[in-house]
Amino acid sequence: MQAIVDFILEVDKLKAVTRKIRLRDIGRYENSAEHSWQLALLAGSLAPHAPVGIDMDRVIRMLLVHDIGEIDTGDTMAFVEGGWDERKAAELAAVRRIFGLLPASEGERLLALWREFDESLTPEAVFANAVDRAMPVLLNLANQGQSWRENGISHERVVRRVGPPIQAGCPALWAFLEERLADARQLGYFGEDVQPG
């Protein structure tokens, strides 16, 4: 029991990891714990549009653990280019440490889910990655492109980064978003194409 309590108190730190996008209609930025929770709800809500046979429970569990490593590494904006191998290695070390707080069988199970999401080879992981890429788009659309404008992210860069994984995992969601992204471009929701910090 103590190991479970130690783990759950450690993951409480995910609430302190600030992301680059503001909550809808609220001035503060979201944190990674809120992001993971919202992804789990979005995935469940998208179940009618998921590929046939998807294990939605597995998808939701993946989404709940996919950013645990950010407790040690912090959040990296999806549009940062370069350095991904180093960041992934640091995240892997972090999740090994954090999941290592649990009894071995449970820690190994969560690490396997984290790896499955990261490798994005199973239908569940492909769908989970689509959901992960879509949520910031939905928030940016609701916030008139706040994060895109603040970080100099162009329409082309958004489409290039999020289009393929969303299309691969949930084509109906991409069809919905593609049209809204075109409208957002006309409304000036995007920034100049610069490398975000």
Rank of each mutant, 00 (worst) to 15 (best):
M1C: 02
Q2R: 14
I4A: 00
V5M: 11
F7W: 08
F7G: 00
I8A: 12
V11L: 14
D12M: 07
K13Q: 02
A16V: 09
R19Q: 08
R19V: 05
R19H: 08
I21N: 07
I21G: 03
I21C: 07
R22L: 09
L23D: 02
R24N: 10
R28C: 09
R28E: 09
E30G: 06
S32Y: 07
E34T: 13
E34S: 10
E34I: 13
E34R: 11
W37M: 07
Q38V: 12
A40F: 06
G44Q: 10
A47P: 08
A47S: 13
A47E: 12
H49K: 12
A50E: 05
I54P: 02
I54S: 04
D57M: 07
R61I: 03
L63K: 04
D67H: 11
G69V: 02
E70I: 05
I71Y: 08
T73L: 04
M77T: 00
M77C: 00
M77R: 00
F79S: 07
V80F: 06
E81P: 00
G82P: 05
G83M: 03
E86S: 11
R87W: 02
R87Q: 05
R87E: 02
A90K: 09
A90M: 08
E91M: 11
A93L: 15
V95N: 08
V95Y: 03
V95R: 09
R96K: 14
R97Y: 02
L101K: 10
L102F: 10
L102N: 06
A104T: 04
A104W: 01
S105T: 00
G107D: 06
G107R: 14
E108G: 04
L110E: 03
R115Y: 00
D118V: 06
P123N: 09
A125M: 10
V126G: 14
A128S: 11
R133P: 04
M135S: 00
L139T: 03
N140I: 05
L141W: 01
Q144H: 14
Q146I: 07
Q146K: 13
G152S: 12
E156L: 12
R157K: 15
V158S: 00
V159N: 03
G163E: 01
G163H: 03
P165W: 07
P165V: 09
Q167Y: 07
Q167W: 07
L173C: 08
L173M: 13
F176M: 14
F176D: 11
F176R: 12
L177S: 09
L181M: 06
L187K: 14
L187D: 04
L187M: 11
G188K: 15
G188L: 15
G188H: 15
G188T: 12
F190S: 06
G191T: 02
E192H: 04
G197S: 12
